[in-house]
Computed example of a mutant assay.
Amino acid sequence: MDIIKECVEALKELKERRPLVHNITNYVTVNDCANIILALGGSPVMADDISEVEDMVAIASSLVINMGTLSERTVGSMIKAGKRANQLHIPVIFDPVGVGATPYRNKVAQTLLNEIHFAVIRGNMSEIKCLNGLNVQTKGVDSVTDETGGVEVAKDLAARMNCVAAVTGKTDIITNGKAVCSIANGHPILAHVTGTGCMATALVGTYCGVVADSFIAAAAGVMTMGLAGELAQRTLQDKEGIGTFRVRLFDSVYNLGEDTIRKEGRIKLLA
C-alpha cells in the first residue's frame, strides 16, 4: 500500500465532495473544530440538541462525538445520534477527551462504547490505555503517560472494538488491529494551543466522510494536523507566539496541497 498516495487521493476527494460533518463536541473548542473542518474543505454542523440530532446525522457524511465538556444533556444526544448513524452506516468518530480523569467520565466513555460502534477512536496515549483497561495517569484532559508499548495497546483496542485506533503524541500510531502506520509529522508547539487534539479528531471525521477505509481516513486526518503544525511553526518570527501560530495553523490546513503531502508527509507502514 502506498499510504502517501492514498492520503493525497483522500484530500482530492474531500475537496470535490465537501462532506457534511455532524459534531457533538465540547464548548471549549467548538468554534475551532468548525473552522478547521471548513479550512480542510468540509462543511461542519454543530448540533447537539436531542430533539434534532437524529435528523441532522441522517443528512451528514460522518458524525464526530467529543466528550470534552460532558453533561447529561449532551450524553443523551451522543447516544441517540450515534445509534442512528450506525443504523444508516454513517461513520462515527470518538474522541474520549479526559477519560481516566474522573469516575463519571470513565462511566460515560464505557456507555458510549457499549451503545455505539465507532469507526475511529482518536485519543492521546493516556486515553487509549484507559479505554483498554490499563492504569494510567492523567492531568485533567492531558496525557502524562509515556508511549511505551503504544503500538500493542492501540492494536488491542482496535481489535477488541473492531475499529481504527488513532493514538496521537510525539509519534502518532494508526491501526485497524492488523495494519499499523506511524506518523512523524508535528511540532511540540501544538500542545500549547487548546483544542489541537479535538481539531485533529474533527479532521479525521472530515476524511471519514469521503473515504470508505477508516484506516486511511484516520492516517490522513492525523497527518494533516501534524503537517499543518509544522508548516505554521516555520512561519513564526521573533516575538510571535501561540496566538499567531493558531491563526497560521488554520491557514496551513486551508493551503495544504498534494505536493506538500508527497514531499513532507512522514508516514511509515509498520505492518
Rank of each mutant, 00 (worst) to 15 (best):
A179S: 13
A158T: 15
V151S: 05
K139L: 14
V153I: 15
A154K: 08
D142C: 03
N176L: 11
T138R: 07
R160M: 09
V136L: 06
T148E: 13
A165E: 08
A179P: 00
S182F: 02
A165G: 09
G177F: 05
C181M: 05
G150E: 09
T138A: 05
V136C: 06
G177T: 15
C181G: 07
C181Y: 03
I173A: 05
G169Q: 13
G149A: 10
A166M: 07
N162M: 13
T138N: 00
K178F: 01
A179C: 06
V153N: 02
G150T: 08
A154T: 10
I183V: 09
T171W: 00
I173L: 10
T168I: 04
Q137S: 12
I174W: 05
E152H: 12
E147M: 06
D172I: 10
V180H: 11
V136M: 08
V180R: 14
N162Y: 09
V167R: 01
V164S: 10
V141G: 01
A184R: 14
K170S: 03
C181N: 08
D172N: 12
K170C: 01
D146F: 13
K139C: 12
V164D: 10
V136I: 15
A184H: 15
T145N: 03
A159T: 15
N176K: 13
G177R: 12
V151L: 10
R160V: 15
V136Y: 00
S143R: 09
I183L: 02
I173C: 08
V180F: 07
G140H: 05
V153P: 00
T171S: 00
I173P: 12
K178Q: 11
D156Y: 02
A165S: 15
K155V: 04
R160H: 07
V136F: 01
K155P: 01
L157F: 05
T148L: 08
T138K: 04
M161Q: 13
C163I: 14
T168Q: 00
D146Y: 12
T171G: 00
G140N: 09
K170E: 06
V153R: 01
V153H: 04
Q137K: 14
G149H: 06
V151F: 09
D142M: 04
V151Y: 07
I173F: 04
V153F: 07
V151P: 02
A158E: 06
T171E: 03
G169V: 15
D146Q: 08
N162A: 13
C163F: 07
V136G: 03
A179N: 14
G150S: 07
T168D: 00
C163Y: 08
K170N: 04
A179E: 15
N176I: 15
C181P: 14
K170R: 10
A159C: 10
I183M: 03
A165K: 11
A158N: 06
T148V: 11
K170P: 03
V180Y: 11
K170D: 05
G140L: 11
G140A: 07
E152S: 13
V151N: 02
K178G: 01
T148M: 06
L157H: 02
V141N: 04
